[in-house]
């Protein structure tokens, strides 16, 4: 696990704190998802999965908790990026402003956009997309 005191970045600490503050206002049936999001942020070793869980939490809770999800979105867009193969890097800022429901949705949309702008890009680009920490 990459969460020792030297490698645990402050943005992840801030994000974990925001997730923890979501619990009292969230229905109990969503607590497992929030726990998974918290664990993903703490581990910091699988950003594809963590972003997918963030999107699932957002879909269920953002309407009632806009401010914490705005803050989480800002932290994620400042700290993560989407690598789209062959050196393409797609900023997450605009992508997360849209209401994608899962990482698979994002990958399909980005793959389509990259393909439209780069005719040499492989049609199966979605499989090459991955979220990495900056």
């Amino acid at each position: 696990m990459s969460t020792d005191s030297t490698s645990f970045k402050s943005w992840r600490h801030d994000a974990v704190r925001i997730v923890e503050e979501l619990f009292p206002g969230a229905p109990r049936e969503h607590w497992d998802l929030l726990l998974d999001l918290r664990a993903g942020l703490l581990r910091g070793d699988d950003w594809d999965s963590t972003l997918d869980i963030f999107l699932a939490c957002r879909e269920r809770l953002e309407e009632e908790q806009y401010l914490p999800f705005y803050r989480l979105r800002r932290l994620l867009t400042e700290s993560l990026r989407l690598e789209a193969g062959r050196g393409n890097v797609v900023p997450l800022r605009n992508i997360l402003m849209r209401k994608h429901r899962s990482l698979a949705d994002i990958k399909r949309a980005v793959s389509r956009e990259v393909f439209e702008h780069d005719l040499d890009a492989p049609a199966g680009l979605a499989g090459e997309l991955r979220i990495v920490e900056r």
Binding site: Y66, L67, Y70, R71, R93, N94, M97
Partner: peptide
């Protein structure tokens, strides 16, 4: 804030921060 189309709620959230 970046100069780009921004949801109204994001303006409010940014001002809260």
């Amino acid at each position: 804030l970046a100069i780009e189309a921004t949801p109204a709620k994001d303006f409010v959230a940014h001002l809260v921060d």
